[in-house]
Amino acid sequence: MTASPARVIVGGVGYPDLCDYSIGIEIQERLSAWDAPPTVSVEDLSYNPIAVCQRLDDEAPGERFTRMVIVSAVCRGTRPAGTVHCYRWDRQLPSNDEIQDAVTDAVTGIIALENTLVIIGYFGALPAETIVVEIEPEAHEFGGALSDAVRQVFDPVCERMKEFATDDESVARLPIEPLTFSVPPGMRVL
């Protein structure tokens, strides 16, 4: 294990009571009980992305978070449910029109991983390293139950989140990737 970075924020994004789509929130809640090092802050990041951005921006210069580890259900539909994919976001932003759409979504009530990242990226509040942990969901009904496939990865994902929060080498081994989970035109179904 190598030294942890200066400050790390760990959180999840999702909707409550939406089965697998709540996994981001549920993992964040589990990690809240973690006796984390003082440099690590576990927080709910599942609220208005503009407000998340403003919260990150509130940190004093020199004390800002240097790494973010963020988890969410991401439906690509091309991989088995329960697939976990971790990577460092390459911080490439979409076009200005798409960013504007992300802001519109955010201020009108949409909470989603990609608009959270795009907004905090665009407005300059993004920590230098951003680790994205995607979990492929299956169940999308109202309710609290996770599908079997997602339940099985719950504990391992929690451990990996801790690792990414505290171990530089683990992070360095992750691929650098763009956000490639934008939903094709048509219905965006969670």
Partner: peptide, 18 residues
């Protein structure tokens, strides 16, 4: 969202739809 909302047979829609 106030006018209409989020349920379809395909699941819960939380983003824009065309």
């Amino acid at each position: 969202p106030c006018t209409t909302h989020i349920q379809s047979e395909a699941g819960l829609i939380t983003r824009e739809v065309n």
